[in-house]
Write a protein that binds this DNA or RNA. Sequence first.
DNA 1: CCACTGAAGAGGGTCAACGG
DNA 2: CCGTTGACCCTCTTCAGTGG
Length: 344
Amino acid sequence: MNNPTMTTDELRVRTIIELMTNEAYYDSMYSQFIGSVAFIIKAMCRNNTFSELYEISALCNVLKCNIRSIYPKIDFREDMTILNNVFTPAPRVIANCNIAILWSHVLNETDARAANNGPWSSNHFVPLLSSAMHYTSEYGNKSPTFASPEKKTFKNNTPTRIRSPEFECSSSSRRRLDIMGMYSTQSISSSVLQQSQSDIEEQRQVRLDVLKEQARSSRMNETAEHRRIRLENQKHRDQSRRSNETEEHRQFRLEKQKIRNQSNQSNETAEQRQIRLEKQKTRNQSNQSNGTAEQRQIRLEKQKTRDQSRRSNETEQQRQIRLEKQRKRSEANRAKKKLEKTHI
DNA sequence: CCACTGAAGAGGGTCAACGG
DNA sequence: CCGTTGACCCTCTTCAGTGG
């Protein structure tokens, strides 16, 4: 632990090795909260990932210390209990020091709530230092005195990379992720601003991958009742969003959907296309044959109205084209019938 | 965010009826 | 007999809803 030459990169590599070495142990500890450790390990190998339960727990072993995690009881949910916890090294390792971290936010509570559409949630953690503790300043060997516990977000002049807790049942998880993305590029660290655009994009992708895996894992473990509630909530959110969207947004959404459909269809093989159309045909036929006589009547009525409207709205040119086609078809039909008659 | 599904509409084709 | 009309069928596209 007391090794000032250890860089953040080295810590990260050691943590990854620790997670890989004792994968089964960490999986059994936290997979029910945030998904499989295997996925987290892969994500950690990429630059700019954030720390969370697995990383903090593994860090205990790497540093041989206890990490006391404190999560403020603001908008506290039951699933956050795990974050108000003392993480200890795996049984075979004896801790020789203690670290305390506080989950926090870079903005004051009012602004954080405003940015998060109401609920408060942390977007990073900071180490807590005792007021009695003497340490070596980064700027010299003086021992400053503090009147109260201090927080320290930067170590060795580099930002401490962390991942905010994200749980599937959080109604605002997506929003929080977006907010985090914003701070990654705006407030948390000025050094992030200096990173290339591709680094930021990669970081965003890592977060999305982690979130996806967590959501997948959480879905696999949820009860039927949880599933029902989740889908119900999502349905309401979607309906509300659509009913509130502007016409411009609606058009944009539909355009995107159309492009996606067209792209999917242009990429499908002849066989896939055949299967898709066959399915659609079956659905149509099934709908029509399963309907009651009344439903059929309504359907035909609607169709009739559409046809009438179509004809009454067509231009003279369109009408002439239609009649010309019809004439040719009639001729062909009659010729065919004549031929059949002579054969009989 | 994306893929998939069901429902409805658009538009081309078929067929029977009708009138010149 | 031929052209036209209207009802209906069939296929494909579009859109809203749903689930992963």
